[in-house]
Amino acid sequence: MIAEFAFRHPERIALLALQHIALVAVALTVACAIAVPLGIVAARKPRLRTPLLGVLGALYTVPSLALFAILVRVVGLGFWSAVPVLALYAQFILVRAVAAGLLNVPAELTDAATAMGMTPVQRLMRVDVPLALRVFIAGLRSTGVASIALATLAAYAGAGGLGTLIFEGLELRNDAMLAAGALAVAFLALAYDAILRYVERRLPIP
């Protein structure tokens, strides 16, 4: 039944999947652009760490559907009302991952880097970032999987994606459509997870 639906509408599923991927990709890019500096601050300034992670934790507990509803009021229906929600939800895990990765770098290595004459920026780029990468990628993996799942709700905000099949399937009582959407989302999440696992394994850090 599901297969029948998929065979009858392959181009529709493909289009919605591409929309879904684009939405998550843009949201994660925006999320990283915000989370990396925040994570560096959280790692370097112990006094800011707890309040920062506390605020992000609190935001994480806001129901996502409510957040979508608020953004639709503010931005209107569409792609750009979904991106901020996804980017915001990703912050909690990503900022933690960046901070934990940096704090995990052994003190004697950062000490050696400084004593060898690296400037703070050189140290960050040549020692801290490469050594924090594994923890960061692990955070990107879990937050990406969560974003792929969360992006189904973007259909509610008019941003398209595979959630469209689920919402429509619910409305039309078309179980095949609903299941096809859900399975496609699950497949995307598993594929993303597998790719990032592969990247993690290829990192040159012990």
Binding site: E108, G117, L131, I205
Partner: peptide
């Protein structure tokens, strides 16, 4: 300090080689 350090070799207890 940065220029000074580049002219001074430094060997530490835990060896401190960069693993990556």
């Amino acid at each position: 300090p940065v220029a000074l350090r580049r002219g001074i070799g430094y060997v530490i207890q835990a060896i401190g080689l960069f693993p990556h």
